[in-house]
Write a protein that binds this DNA or RNA. Structure first.
Lengths: 135, 135
DNA sequence: GGTATTATGGACATACGTGTCCATAATCCT
DNA sequence: AGGATTATGGACACGTATGTCCATAATACC
């Protein structure tokens, strides 16, 4: 249920970036201060997001970070996946990693299936634009 | 979203115990084999469950583990809480650990709140009896 | 071209979850 | 009482997430 600290850092940073876009790139250290995350650690997170195509990074004087696309076209799953890995898509309750087919033996599925589907739908359908007001 | 390995071990063990109750106590090593978990590690998990009042443990020749109550009166949250800690009850998406009030500023709440509530309701209302068929 | 500025990357430290190994305590049976 | 059986607890090993520190590469500005 709980996202890793890196995932939360990433979400907070991207959401803040989306809420304060003004055409200029944002410095890593400013972003770290605004989002209240250690700057040296956030820089790694941001680099990962840049490699993943969510952010664009530029070095030098007028450098910093920007969203690679409008916030309405960035889904939470894209931000979170590099840090959560396969754990982002939950499987069977009692057999993590297994596909968890509805028809099967596990009687936990009726209840667990709803949780699982609600969660995955949240990550796959929610966009950064719907989050950016949050803090 | 993902429960810790210890929580899953605990759920599997308790569910298996519930599905195979026959009046006799079950040996830790047999339980470990059935549930496919390292015996020396599962023993710690089972000890925690016994301390938590979910299981009763008895030593000696006819010893082993039993459910402390009928499976229909053991809720998943009781099994999982000792291993998940406060993480078992998710908070605000972008501020883990915060109460996450609906009225507040965070625009993630409409979508995230449903996920959160579905998850906590699952843990608090589902009983072992509804799980024990699973494997 | 040179210098300041910024992101990038590597090395390292720490904490914790998971797992292993072994000695000890409690209990049952003869 | 004594020995076999079983759970309990402590010490240790290992990998990974998180976080820190510092050198290096890329870029803008003069």
């Amino acid at each position: 249920m709980i996202l890793s600290a890196s995932s939360v850092h990433a979400l907070r940073a991207v959401a803040w970036l989306a809420a304060h876009e003004n055409g200029e790139a944002m410095l890593g250290r400013d972003l770290a201060r605004q989002v209240n995350v250690p700057a040296d650690y956030l820089s790694k997170v941001l680099a990962t997001l840049a490699r993943g195509g969510v952010l664009t990074a530029s070095r030098g004087v007028k450098g910093g970070y920007r969203l690679a696309r409008p916030a309405s076209r960035i889904r939470l799953i894209e931000v979170v996946l590099p840090f959560e890995g396969k754990r982002a898509i939950p499987g069977c309750l009692l057999r993590p990693g297994h596909p968890c087919r509805e028809s099967g033996a596990c009687s936990a599925h009726p209840a667990w299936g709803r949780v699982k589907d609600t969660y995955t739908a949240f990550l796959e359908k929610t966009t950064i634009a719907q989050i950016k007001g949050g803090s």
